[in-house]
Amino acid sequence: MLGENVPGAPADVDWEATLAARHRIWASGLGVAEAMDTAQRGAGVGWTQAAELVRRSTAEARSCGGAIAAGAGTDQLDLTALPSGRAGLDVVLRAYREQLALVTGSGAVAIVMASRALAAVARSADDYAEVYGALLAEADAPVILHWLGPMFDPLLAGYWGGSDVAAATEVFLRIVRERPEKVDGVKVSLLDAEHEVALRRALPPGVRLYTGDDFHYSGLVVGDDTGHSDALLGIFAAIHPAASAAIQALDRDDPSTARSILDGTEPLARAVFERPTFHYKTGIAFLSWLNGHQPGFAMAGGLHAGRSVPHLAEVFRLADRAGLLADPDLAAARMRSFLLVSGVVA
């Protein structure tokens, strides 16, 4: 709480609370996707802090046998100083290689994150295919590719070479189909369930679709006769007790119970991820504070100011309705204190 977590300053991380959050997720039987956008990657948390987060979290995972994957990107680069053309692509490749070496060297499964730098220097779909093709060719183990839509990060608009989603999908599929043995799966965060199902059906055998759709995950995870999506979702950081119960129901071959559990959490998820979706992380941190998992409601980069008081009040109400307040009395007391300092109640 006393860290200089203000806009533009390096993140001052509360390591004890941060790592305890990972242990709660592992204790629920779920895995951790580390150093991605939910962990404020590229939004108050830079590569220096993210690298330390990966090192510490993978060490904790080894200590308890927890599953962990981690994001590798290019956010050590200064977007204002990128060269153009071939030189720019080479810089992006070197940055990716640096981060992939740290992630895989730590023992985590690598998630190749969408790159703001690549979006800035690429001039065609072929540029994306070249960079990703090189990374996959060099990979020692299968990786997860992440397609993050502009609703989550406006600087990624036009990723894969254009704004047409159908054309971008074909580029994405071409990259995967060229080296399917190097792709564990693809995480798609476009908030378009129909597109996700169509993409899932078009993937090569053995390549998973990890849903990043925090609006429609219930039906996508439970699936249908043609298959299902695996979950790699930001909202699971807030609803992991319910998510764990749903996954256990699926393990018992009880999809109706799983669907009912997840359906009950989707109104909360849709509120947390409402536009501007980029600020969903504020709701995740607010729920963590309400549930007593961090001493104060504060975020790196000052992003705790990213949502309004009415929005956070609605998040509180929907979390209560979904049964996701671990200690309702504590949560109510903290909500009252938040409203008091916000000038809503006297």
Rank of each mutant, 00 (worst) to 15 (best):
L2I: 12
A9L: 04
P10S: 07
P10E: 07
I25F: 01
S28I: 00
L30R: 09
E34C: 04
M36S: 04
A39V: 02
A39F: 04
A39P: 02
A43K: 14
W47S: 13
A50F: 00
R56T: 00
R56D: 01
S57E: 01
S57A: 15
A67P: 01
A69T: 04
A70S: 13
A72K: 11
A72I: 02
T74W: 13
T74Q: 07
A81D: 13
A87Y: 11
V91P: 02
L93N: 07
A95S: 15
Y96S: 04
L100V: 12
A101S: 12
S106Q: 05
I111K: 08
M113L: 15
A114T: 00
A114C: 00
A117W: 03
S124R: 08
D126A: 15
D127Q: 11
D127A: 10
D127W: 10
E130H: 12
A137K: 14
A137M: 06
V143N: 12
L145P: 06
L145G: 11
L148I: 02
L155G: 07
Y159G: 03
D164F: 05
D164R: 14
E170R: 13
R174T: 05
P180A: 09
S189Y: 00
L190F: 00
D192I: 00
H195K: 07
E196G: 06
L199M: 15
R200F: 11
P204E: 12
G206M: 09
D214A: 04
H216N: 15
Y217I: 02
L220G: 07
V222L: 13
G223E: 03
S229G: 04
A231N: 06
L233E: 05
L233A: 06
F236G: 04
S244I: 01
A246H: 09
A246S: 08
I247E: 12
I247Y: 15
D251G: 10
D253H: 15
D254M: 10
D254V: 08
S256H: 11
T257F: 06
T257R: 15
A258R: 13
D263C: 02
G264S: 09
T265V: 15
L268Y: 13
T277Q: 03
H279F: 15
S288V: 03
G292W: 11
G292C: 07
P295W: 09
G302L: 06
L303E: 14
S308E: 07
L312E: 07
A313E: 14
E314G: 14
R317A: 15
R317N: 06
L318M: 08
L318Y: 04
A319E: 06
R321G: 04
R321H: 09
A322W: 09
L325S: 08
A326N: 08
P328E: 08
L330C: 05
A333Y: 08
R334L: 05
M335P: 01
M335F: 14
M335L: 14
R336Y: 02
S337Q: 14
F338V: 05
L339K: 10
V341C: 09
V344Q: 11
A346M: 07
A346Y: 02
